[in-house]
């Protein structure tokens, strides 16, 4: 779930408020977005991807973490190089190399990517 909005990094552009598919943010009085509906967060990491200043952090947990969790500690996240790490992986942001051109799809993955469910294959075994 979304756990952190960095006041020092935020440029008050409102992008996260606009792009969150489940509408978890509202603009605070100082212009910095406030997480007002954390329980609606679907942990999709989209706000993090779209934030132009790497100011947001989404913890991997689908439930809120405790108040003293390192995921709510900006300095700890910076120290572990986690703030902005998703944008770095997909190559969004200045001076970053776009992700898709590097996605060469290793040969082992060329078959249908996702075979789920299971029943049919088991039935034919």
């Amino acid at each position: 779930m979304i756990e952190l909005v960095s006041k020092s990094r935020c440029i008050r552009c409102d992008i996260c408020i606009r792009v969150c598919p489940t509408n978890v943010f509202e603009r605070g009085q100082d212009g910095v977005p406030v997480i007002v509906r954390q329980e609606d967060c679907q942990t999709c990491f989209m706000c993090e991807a779209w934030c132009p200043t790497d100011a947001l952090f989404v913890a991997p947990q689908t439930e809120a973490v405790p108040a003293d969790s390192p995921y709510r500690d900006e300095q700890e996240l910076i120290r572990r190089d986690l703030l902005g790490s998703y944008r770095r992986e997909i190559g969004w942001g200045k001076y970053r190399e776009a992700g898709p051109p590097r996605d060469t799809r290793p040969a082992v993955m060329r078959e249908p990517l996702e075979i789920g469910g299971g029943a049919a294959l088991e039935g034919s075994r």
Partner: peptide, 23 residues
């Protein structure tokens, strides 16, 4: 997983690794 495949997997699906890297 084959030994040298991690980088390729990371490029193919970066979000798969997010929860692991963070945890």
């Amino acid at each position: 997983a084959p030994a040298d495949i991690e980088d390729d997997l990371r490029r193919a699906q970066p979000n798969f690794f997010l929860p692991f890297d963070r945890e």
